[in-house]
Design a protein around this nucleic acid. Sequence first.
DNA 1: CCGGGGTTGTTATACTATAACATAACGAAT
DNA 2: ATTCGTTATGTTATAGTATAACAACCCCGG
Lengths: 161, 161
Amino acid sequence: MTDTYPDQAFAKHDHRHCIKAALREAARICRERNGRLTEQRQRVLELVWKSHKPVGAYVILEQLRADGFNGAPPTVYRALDFLLEHGLIHRIESLNAYTGCAHPGEQHSGQFLICSHCQRVAELDDLKVKKAIRNSAALHGFKADHQVIEIRGLCPQCQDH
Amino acid sequence: MTDTYPDQAFAKHDHRHCIKAALREAARICRERNGRLTEQRQRVLELVWKSHKPVGAYVILEQLRADGFNGAPPTVYRALDFLLEHGLIHRIESLNAYTGCAHPGEQHSGQFLICSHCQRVAELDDLKVKKAIRNSAALHGFKADHQVIEIRGLCPQCQDH
DNA sequence: CCGGGGTTGTTATACTATAACATAACGAAT
DNA sequence: ATTCGTTATGTTATAGTATAACAACCCCGG
């Protein structure tokens, strides 16, 4: 696999479908691993997916509250931690924000294209990039373990502004 | 140029030399550009370089204070911003910390190997990685502008633990 | 029914960063 | 040397991000 969603990344699509698929996948993965996808965790996952761009923990918190839930930051962070551990979401380091994982379950560290204009993010998993990095690290005797790759720029739709 | 400091990255070396060289380089670059390398900025740059691992803004602040300076966060952040703008330091997104730039002046976005054990960081500028990423982005019609690449793992010295 | 692991509630606090406005230092032009 | 605009710094307050610590709860297996 070089690229999982070659074009879909920034393309228009029915996002409700994504959300549903993500929830279904999450349920499956958690069942497999005996992870408990509780009501809270599911709600947080849904909120992450609902946004078409990465969301901060406190935005999620606000939305939970708007939804009648009266919680505090730790609740949200715990849910996020759980989802991160199980590979259901990613954290975008350069934004302090979280985004749904495009192909959960498989072990992978994401590579992200982040549009500086519309804030949308596409997740890649390019083998060549991964290899180039692994080689480069190996050259220095470095044993790579996890990679944070976040590319800023303009997505196709935003290049004419 | 593929790699600038092939082995030196994690190798032992007289770090005082690095600091001096960095300060000298910084002075030269600022002179060239009419940037003012003030006392404060120089002190901050020195503190960043003095640490062999990335330092947080508040650690720098502490050290400035220990040094008789009675300042507040904005002072430090302003100095850091200046140094970042002029390519004299880098920000490590995944650590919220700052580290001296190994080859200032040249335009480049760093690639970093970050040791999870000793926290030291090596800066690379691997052409193959850069190209792989540029290609990958291009495949998606994405116009890349800046790349954040931070690889976690174990440096040569820390792999036996 | 009991017990124990995992989950959530709750309060407080640490850590990271910036807004906004006042003052001071610098440097080019007169 | 004086003036003036620009850039840099001081200062206070606050926004934004994340975790520590402990109590209460719940689910499920024995």
